[in-house]
Amino acid sequence: MRHVIALDVGGTGMKAGLVGLDGVPLYEARRATGRERGPDAVVESVLGFAQELLAHGRTHFGRAAEAAGAAVPGVVDTDRGVAVRSADLGWRNVPLRGLLSRRLGRIPVALGQDVPTGGLAEGRVGAARGTGRFLYVSLGTGIAGAIGIDGGIEPGAHGRAGGLGHIVVRPDGPACGCGGRGCLEALASVTAIGRAWATAGGGPGADAADCARAVEAGDEAARAVWRAAVDALADGLVTALTVLNPRALVIGGRLAGTGDTLLTPLREAVAERVTFQQLPAILPAALGDAAGWRGAGLLAGELLTRRQAV
C-alpha cells in the first residue's frame, strides 16, 4: 500500500504515523525526544524514529514510504527545510529536511512549523473541513494561529502569519517573552494561567489544568483568574476576526482540553464584543494532539502530487 511518513516533533515527545495517499491514517506511534540529552540527541531521536516508521511500512504494507513530512516548533524556513530556531528543542539552524531525506533513502521531505501544520489538518480533515476560511488557534505554552483559506494555510510574506499570541491586549500588562508587554500570550496561555492561579491560591506548582478544575468546583479565586484569561483571549480574537473575517474559529492546544469550561465563556465573551463583525462559529479542534502529524502527512502527500504534475 502506498503511504507517507508523518512526524510531529514536540518539546518532550514525538507523535507520528504512516498515512495512505488518500489521507487515511494507517499506523500511529509515539516516542520521547530525549531532550534531556541535548539538541543533537533530539535530532538523532527524530531521525531514528523516522527510520523505524520506514521499516514498519516496508514490513506491514509491502513497500517503503514515498515521502515524509515533519512538523516542528519554533521558527522554520520551509523553503530551505531548516529549523531556524526552537527554544523547545534547543535547535538553531538544523537542516532537518536534508537530514531526514538522507536517512530515509533520499525520499522527498516537507518541513513545516507545528501550528500551521496542525491548522492545515483541522482545515482539511478536522473541525474546519468545508468552511473555506477559518482561523485555527492553538492555546498551549504559547499562543499561535494559522489562517486557513480554501484548503491551505496562508504563510504570510515571511512565513510568520498567525502570530496571535503577540497581539497586545493589555498595553500596561505583564512582560512577554517576545520583549513586549501585555501580549495575549502573557495573559491567556497555559503558562500564564498557571502562573496566575499559583499566585491567586493554587499554590506552588499549580498549572492551568488545576485552575480549570478549581473553576469547575466553584472556587471564586480560580474563576477570577479564568475570567481574566478568557477576557484577554476574547479581546485578541475579536481583533483577529475583525481583520480576517473567518467563517470559523477553531480552538486547539492544551487549553482546549478543558472543553466547555473554556468554550462556553469564550463564546459569550466574543459575542459580547462584536459590533459590526460577523460572529464566526467557535469550534473545538477535532484532531486533538494528532493534528500536527496528520498535517505533516498532508504536506508529504502534496510533495508527491506536485511531482506527478510536473
Rank of each mutant, 00 (worst) to 15 (best):
Gly48Ile: 15
Asp88Trp: 10
Asp88Thr: 04
Arg103Thr: 14
Arg63Leu: 08
Arg103Val: 14
Val46Trp: 06
Arg31His: 12
Leu89Met: 06
Ala65Gln: 01
Gln113Pro: 14
Ala68Ser: 06
Gly23Val: 02
Val115Tyr: 00
Ala50Asp: 01
Ala50Gly: 04
Thr59Gln: 10
Trp91Thr: 00
Gln51Phe: 08
Arg106His: 12
Gly105Lys: 13
Ala32Thr: 07
Gly34Cys: 09
Ala71Val: 01
Arg63Asp: 15
Tyr27Asp: 08
His60Gly: 11
Arg63Lys: 10
Ala55Asn: 14
Asp88Lys: 12
Ile107Glu: 11
Arg97Ser: 10
Val109Arg: 10
Ala29Gly: 00
Arg97Gln: 14
Gly74Pro: 06
Arg63Asn: 12
Val72Phe: 15
Ala67Arg: 13
His56Phe: 11
Val76His: 10
Arg58Met: 09
Asp40Ile: 06
Pro116Asn: 10
Tyr27Met: 12
Pro73Asp: 02
Ala71Cys: 05
Arg80His: 12
Ala110Thr: 00
Ala87Leu: 04
Arg31Cys: 12
Gln113Asp: 15
Asp40Asn: 08
Ala68His: 00
Leu26Ser: 03
Gly112Met: 09
Val75Met: 15
Asp79Ile: 11
Leu100Gln: 08
Leu99Phe: 06
Glu52Cys: 15
Pro25Leu: 11
Pro108Phe: 11
Gly105Met: 04
Arg58Glu: 08
Ala29His: 06
Gly81His: 03
Arg63Pro: 15
Gly81Cys: 09
Gly38Ser: 02
Gly34Leu: 08
Asp40Leu: 10
Asp114Ile: 07
Asp77Ser: 03
Val82Ile: 14
Val82Pro: 08
Val82Thr: 06
Gln51Tyr: 09
Val76Trp: 04
Pro95Asp: 07
Gly20Leu: 02
Pro95Asn: 07
Gly17Asp: 02
Ala87Met: 05
Leu99Cys: 10
Ala64Asn: 07
Leu104Asp: 12
Ala83Ile: 02
Ala67Ile: 12
Arg80Gly: 12
Leu104Lys: 14
Leu99Gln: 11
Pro116Arg: 00
Asp40Glu: 08
Ala70Val: 15
Leu111His: 11
Leu100Lys: 11
Val109Tyr: 10
Thr117Ala: 13
Arg58Ile: 15
Asp114Glu: 10
Tyr27Ser: 10
Arg35Trp: 02
Trp91Val: 03
Glu52Pro: 15
Gly38Cys: 07
Ala50Val: 07
Ala65Arg: 07
Gln51Glu: 14
